[in-house]
């Protein structure tokens, strides 16, 4: 059973239809890459998955259970959305670290706030805090930034900021980690260090949904690739199928431009 499934997602802004019936699924431990030209709706799709946008039509399923249904007329409360969001992590193109917190505190902030709503928080305050801080330390180690934990974002390079952002997303132990062009704001030589962290996560069987313009990375790491064109999935398949044997003219054109 797929860990996550999107069914017939539609989304329009004012008059422009951005997603016109997008369906895909992702298995546990898989890396699913989404490629496609600018404006094809990749970011919008990822934002829908993270409840930053609300689809006009369609459903999300998590392990076979309905997570969201756009036709559900009751609507969902803020609180429900917050809970549903926690299944997903999101890494933004522009990092969006909190500038007034150190790398370490960026990672600890959300887990600490969440812990406060736990019923046993008062009783086990010290243990919980310890646990969160310990987790943050090991995440920083994992992204290779143990020595930068006390640095503020403005004291870190773009690549380092993005790695902190990945650690921050991981701190909440999401089931699916989403990336929206995580390296496109970075210099090419710095891109490598972020991709290395993502490859490591893939090797550890983290389920990942990656919008990327890094074709080499997509080909090497992805289990499945989706090619989006003008709001629909024009082609999908394994990395080998998509890059080795593209079927549609649009995909062939896209790949030749990306080279």
């Amino acid at each position: 059973m797929p860990v996550f499934e999107a069914k017939d997602i539609y989304k329009k802004f004012d008059k422009t239809e951005v997603l016109k019936g997008v369906s895909f699924s992702i298995e546990e431990g898989e890396v699913l890459s989404i490629i496609g030209s600018s404006g094809s709706g990749k970011t919008t799709l990822l934002r829908c998955v993270n409840f930053l946008e609300t689809p006009d039509l369609g459903q999300f399923y998590l392990r076979g259970n309905l997570l969201f249904d756009a036709s559900d007329k009751k609507g969902i409360s803020e609180k429900e959305i917050r809970q549903k969001r926690l299944h997903f992590g999101m890494v933004f193109q522009s990092f969006n670290l909190f500038p007034q917190y150190t790398a370490f505190d960026n990672i600890c902030l959300a887990p600490m706030l969440l812990a406060k709503s736990r019923p046993d928080y008062k009783k086990n305050k010290a243990i919980i805090k310890d646990e969160i801080e310990h987790n943050a330390e090991s995440l920083l180690k994992k992204v290779g930034l143990s020595d930068k934990m006390d640095n503020y974002p403005c004291q870190l390079s773009g690549g380092q900021q993005q790695r902190v952002a990945i650690a921050r997303a991981l701190a909440l132990k999401p089931e699916i980690l989403c990336f929206d062009e995580p390296t496109s704001a970075l210099d090419p030589e710095i891109t490598v260090e972020v991709l290395a962290v993502m490859k490591e996560l893939a090797a550890e069987k983290m389920t990942m949904l990656v919008v990327t313009h890094e074709m080499g990375f997509a080909r090497e790491v992805s289990d499945k690739v989706i090619f989006m064109d003008d709001g629909v999935i024009a082609e999908s398949g394994t990395a080998e199928e998509i890059f080795g044997n593209p079927q549609t003219k649009r995909l062939r054109e896209f790949l030749s431009v990306m080279k």
């Binding site: 993270n50 930053l52 917050r82 809970q83 969001r85 926690l86 997903f88 992590g89 999101m90 933004f92 969006n96 670290l97 909190f98 902030l109 959300a110 706030l113 969440l114 921050r168 997303a169 909440l172």
Partner: peptide
């Protein structure tokens, strides 16, 4: 948005 996706 960064805060929101972190469940705040």
């Amino acid at each position: 948005e960064a805060g929101q996706v972190l469940g705040m």
